[in-house]
Simulated scan of single mutants.
Amino acid sequence: MAKRAAVKTKSADGVNPRQPCPCGSGKRYKACHGGAGGAADVIVSRPFEGLAAEGELIALREFVPSATVKLPLLDGKREILLATVLPMAAAALVRGDGTAFVGLQVQTRSGDVSRDLARAVQWAQRAETGEALPVVGVDDGSDPGRLQDLLDPAAGLAPELHRDFGWWMPPDAEPSNEVQLSLERANAAILPTERLEAPGVSAAYWVDAGDKAHLRWVRPEPEEKLLAALARLAVRGEHDLGEGSRYAGSFRAHGLLVPVWDLDRELHSSEWSGPADELGKRLRTALTSLDDEPLTEAERRARDGLRGRQITLR
Rank of each mutant, 00 (worst) to 15 (best):
K8Y: 15
N16S: 09
Q19V: 09
K30E: 11
A31L: 13
A39G: 03
G50F: 05
L51G: 06
L71W: 14
I80H: 06
M88K: 14
A92E: 06
A92M: 01
L93Q: 14
L93P: 09
V94P: 13
A100C: 05
F101C: 07
G103L: 03
D112E: 07
R115I: 05
A124G: 08
Q125R: 15
R126V: 11
E128F: 08
V136A: 04
V136D: 01
V138N: 10
D143V: 03
R146P: 04
L150P: 02
A158L: 12
P159R: 08
L161Q: 05
G166F: 08
S176I: 04
E178A: 11
L183T: 02
E184H: 07
R185A: 11
T193L: 03
E194Q: 13
S202I: 07
L215Q: 01
P222R: 04
E224Q: 10
L233K: 00
E238M: 12
R246K: 10
A248Y: 12
S250N: 07
G255F: 12
P259H: 09
V260S: 01
D264N: 09
D264H: 03
E266L: 10
E266S: 09
L267G: 00
E271R: 13
P294S: 05
T296Y: 00
E297A: 13
A302C: 04
G305H: 09
R307Q: 11
T312P: 04
R314L: 10
